[in-house]
């Protein structure tokens, strides 16, 4: 008797349903969520950098005004 034949119907049903569940609920989303979160990180970084850039520009301008005023 093969070992496969010994597995009960109810048990095989559960194994198959769990695999099917993961094929529907998990696998299609793994890669796209990963990519989206990478984009999100990049856009957050960009927001931080552009804020810093604006602040630097302001500092430089103020520096100019201060030196030309004296």
């Amino acid at each position: 008797m093969s070992s496969g034949a010994k597995i009960m119907v109810w048990k095989r049903h559960i194994s198959e349903q769990l695999k099917l569940r993961d094929r529907v609920q998990r696998q299609p989303f793994e890669e796209i969520f990963h990519q989206y979160n990478r984009l999100l990180e990049k856009s957050d970084l960009q927001a931080v950098l552009s804020e810093r850039y604006q602040a630097d520009k302001y500092e430089v301008q103020r520096g100019h005004e201060a030196s030309s005023g004296s």
């Binding site: 048990k11 559960i14 769990l18 969520f33």
Partner: peptide, 17 residues
């Protein structure tokens, strides 16, 4: 072996949210 696979599949179940 297949019982342990069931335990793993249950543990690693995920819901896309």
């Amino acid at each position: 072996a297949d019982d342990k696979d069931v335990l793993r599949d249950v543990w690693y179940g995920r819901i896309p949210t």
